[in-house]
C-alpha cells in the first residue's frame, strides 16, 4: 500500500489502535502525561469497551491503509460493563485464528490488556507492535485495489479477475 515510499526513508508503518475508554485509553493518556517516549506510529480510536470492537473495524482499518492493528482493553474482571471484555476475548480468539488461517501474518494484529495505571505497559505494547509491523513491511495485501485503482483495464486483466 505504500509502494511509492521514498527509497531513502525507511518504512514507517501506520498502526490503528482500537482501545476501550475506561482502561487502555486512560492508560495511554497516562503514558502521555508521564512523558514516556514511544513510537509515534499509532492512531488511537477510542470505544466504550472492547466488547464494542467489531472485527470488521480491524478489516476496515487494513482496507484503509493500516499496516497493523492493536486491540486493547481492560484486564479480565476489570470491565466497566462487567463482561464486555470476556465476550470480546472469545470473539477475537475466533477472529485471530480465522485471519491467520487466511494467511495474515501473526504480528500484524496485537491484542493486549492495558489498565488505566499501566502507562508503561502501553508504551511496550506500542513499541513492540510497531517493531513487529516494521519488520513485516507494508501491508500490500490488496493488489489492484490500492490507489490509484484501475484493474481489469484489458480483457486479459479482466480474464484474470474473472478466472482467478
Amino acid at each position: 500500500m505504500h509502494a511509492t515510499l521514498d527509497k531513502e526513508s525507511p518504512f514507517e508503518p501506520r498502526l490503528t489502535a482500537f482501545v476501550c475508554n475506561w482502561c487502555t485509553y486512560t492508560g495511554a493518556d497516562l503514558a502521555g502525561t508521564s512523558r514516556l517516549q514511544m513510537d509515534a506510529n499509532v492512531r488511537i480510536v477510542r470505544l466504550p469497551c472492547t466488547g464494542r470492537i467489531d472485527p470488521l473495524f480491524i478489516v476496515k482499518a487494513f482496507e484503509r491503509g493500516a499496516d497493523g492493528v492493536i486491540v486493547s482493553g481492560c484486564h479480565p474482571a476489570d470491565c466497566h460493563y462487567t463482561s464486555g471484555n470476556y465476550h470480546a476475548r472469545r470473539r477475537f480468539a475466533f477472529f485471530k485464528e480465522l485471519v491467520e488461517f487466511l494467511g495474515l501474518p501473526e504480528g500484524r494484529i496485537t491484542f493486549s490488556w492495558v489498565s488505566a495505571s499501566e502507562g508503561q505497559k502501553w508504551r511496550e505494547v506500542v513499541n513492540d507492535a510497531t517493531a513487529r509491523v516494521r519488520a513485516l513491511g507494508p501491508f500490500a495485501a490488496y493488489p489492484g485495489t490500492a490507489l490509484p485503482s484501475f484493474p481489469a483495464a484489458s480483457p486479459a486483466d479482466a480474464a484474470k479477475g474473472a478466472a482467478r
Partner: peptide, 16 residues
C-alpha cells in the same frame, strides 16, 4: 452458543 457465552478462564495466550 460459544460466542454468546464465555468462561472467566477462557484461554487468552494470544492477549499480551
Amino acid at each position: 452458543s460459544p460466542v454468546g457465552a464465555f468462561k472467566k478462564d477462557d484461554p487468552q495466550e494470544f492477549i499480551l
